[in-house]
Design a protein around this nucleic acid. Structure first.
Lengths: 357, 357
DNA sequence: AGCTAGAATGGGAACGGTTTCATTCAATGT
DNA sequence: ACATTGAATGAAACCGTTCCCATTCTAGCT
């Protein structure tokens, strides 16, 4: 009854080695039943077993500290209960939130999410996909960093459903869950125009590896013409020497003889918004006088006086939807239906940075 | 040679069903060798095989699109190549960065990181630990949300090394990698005193479930006495109605008859810094006049005019160290050495929010 | 020539489960 | 009393690997 006996009972009970995890066979022997019955007990077929047997199995299992080996399980049955998620930049708040949503959805389904970060490196992407394949994940949701590697088609060929997140893949047709980029850009332009801004600068990270960046930029360019607005755009890698950005923005803001249009900056994603804001602060520009707006909501957007206007993506929902979409594909009858596209609308958070004067 | 024959070779070649992933046996048969040889080829024992055999295996493997089944592999060999990471709040930037570091370290070692988020819920923590155990992860690094569940001791008993991140566990002795909380608080107080602040308010999230929060608070209280400073502290859940925080801060800042000491707020972590800053902005307090300082560096810390002073944790390194520590434990001879404690110093980023007047 | 060491290869037993199929046995119908 | 059924249980095959043993063969040695 005392602490000591309890400890002893806990540590030395195993009739085999103490450090080795108990197997189904040990439980079976200990309970004096066949391993089939133990297997049934742990695979949701208890209703088949007599109460007495359930009792004995339960007792032995707890005593030995038995846990079914998921590896062995998925080897025979084929169901690994694992979903892979490949994300291009895990430090991007967008990715995190999507991941959070995806993880929740997985848990509700009794699945686990294996998250791989590629740091936007196609090589790592390839490696991670190979890895996921080797664990026989039941599906993959991917925020692709590069071209559709052959790894991807390999996965698809082997029957693993694939959902693209945020980014399409040039010559690969798969389901995609993403922001409606055209609507987002349109909404941004609507808002900026409403607020009286007439000369715009769109700032983006390099568009080469990310289709969504490209889609946003293209829509911006197109709408510029369609709406007969003044405007330029700028693509540059962040995290480089900041003065490039400073100079470009300074050039854009420099007063010109021929136009007095009110100017505004539109940022293609959260990282850009951070960099641009930093640059503006450095140049002591008053937000609002020069408009500032960004795609992606940021936790600190309302903190920078007078608040930064953003277009929020429904990140959590995007993650959840990706998983649900995946599950649908896993239903045998839905394997071969044509690729779906699920696009979400951005939500405007209007703040002081787009209130001129 | 043409495209067509290549495609046919690619898709229909498998002598079984086309969608099924090829097995080692199929490769062996296709190459006319034994599965043992194929296994050798893929397990880093190529040097044992004659060049001709290597050639044939390689050819067959590529043609069939063979990938070793990691499940089967770890079933036989016992090495799952998987490390589990359990994190209390995945949306906390601190967690993210630690995770990033851990993941890098894993990849360098050919391991994969399975990340589980508990949202600070002990139930989820329990479930996730059970899950990780069932996949026979080779080790776990955990940012514990609750009490040491029996799951944890179960893992430990079964011989899985465990590393605690940031938070200790009351009655469980394991390696821990964390910030040196006492040094951090001392450094904060040193700095605040140097800058002339004499009346302090320490703001923390509830300390009950997180040892590091408790350690910081305790050190603060103790040093308050030791240094003969004025001060109070405040523990409250964030994300609740913000007016609680507003009122508490307002009360602290209200001018008192008996003291004109310069006041400063010290935030226990990044989330608190965000909430407190928001509250100060709402109350139109000028940062610096009232000091503001936070533990955890934040990407936007330099953006809020005049910049928020922070104590940065070496997050990346903490993650990497956790993994390395784990690997050491995995070395058979290091299994039973006494628990290690690896503490890191915080780094001061002095900014305008602690420059009075 | 006869013998042996060592390299190259393959056969088959694990690994820890699930699953199919057979067996036992008590209860029911006629 | 006997056939029929269905519930409870177990034996054995299988999942895709690894790994311990053979086994074969060639080259080098006495």
């Amino acid at each position: 009854m005392g602490t000591v006996s309890f400890n002893v009972g806990n540590c030395m009970c195993a009739d085999t080695t103490s450090t080795t995890q108990a197997t189904i066979l040990q439980v079976a022997q200990d309970a004096g039943v066949s391993k089939t019955s133990v297997s049934r007990y742990f695979s949701g077929e208890r209703y088949r077993l007599s109460p007495g047997m359930q009792q004995r199995i339960k007792a032995s299992a707890t005593r030995l500290g038995y846990r079914p080996n998921q590896m062995a399980r998925s080897l025979k049955g084929g169901r690994s209960r694992l979903i892979g998620m490949v994300v291009a930049d895990i430090r991007n708040p967008f990715s995190i939130d999507v991941m959070h949503g995806a993880e929740q959805a997985c848990r509700e389904q009794g699945l686990s999410l294996v998250v791989c970060n590629t740091d936007n490196d196609p090589n790592q992407e390839r490696d991670h996909l190979a890895l996921l394949a080797s664990y026989r994940v039941e599906g993959v949701i991917i925020n692709a960093a590069g071209q559709p590697s052959q790894e991807l088609s390999a996965l698809a060929n082997q029957g693993t459903p694939l959902i693209l997140l945020d980014r399409t893949l040039s010559d690969y047709d798969a389901d995609i869950v993403a922001l409606d980029n055209r609507q987002a850009i349109d909404a941004a332009l609507d808002h900026l125009q409403d607020q009286g801004y007439r000369d715009l600068l769109y700032v983006s990270e390099p568009t080469s590896q990310a289709s969504s960046r490209q889609a946003r930029l293209e829509r911006f360019q197109q709408q510029l013409k369609a709406r007969n607005l003044l405007g330029k755009w700028l693509c540059l890698p962040l995290g480089q020497e900041a003065h490039h950005l400073d100079e470009a923005i300074a050039a854009f803001l420099a007063p010109e003889a021929d136009t007095h249009a009110t100017k505004a900056l539109l940022c293609g994603n959260g990282n850009v918004t951070l960099a641009v804001t930093r640059s503006l602060v450095r140049q002591q520009v008053r937000l609002g006088d020069v408009g500032l707006m960004g795609i992606d909501e940021l936790p600190w957007a309302d903190l920078i006086d007078p608040g930064i206007t953003t277009l929020a993506q429904p990140t959590d929902i995007i993650g959840r939807t990706a998983i649900h979409s995946l599950l649908q594909r896993l239903q045998a009858r839905d394997r071969d239906s044509p690729p779906r596209q699920i696009l979400y609308q951005a939500r405007l958070h209007a703040r002081g940075s787009t209130r001129p004067g």
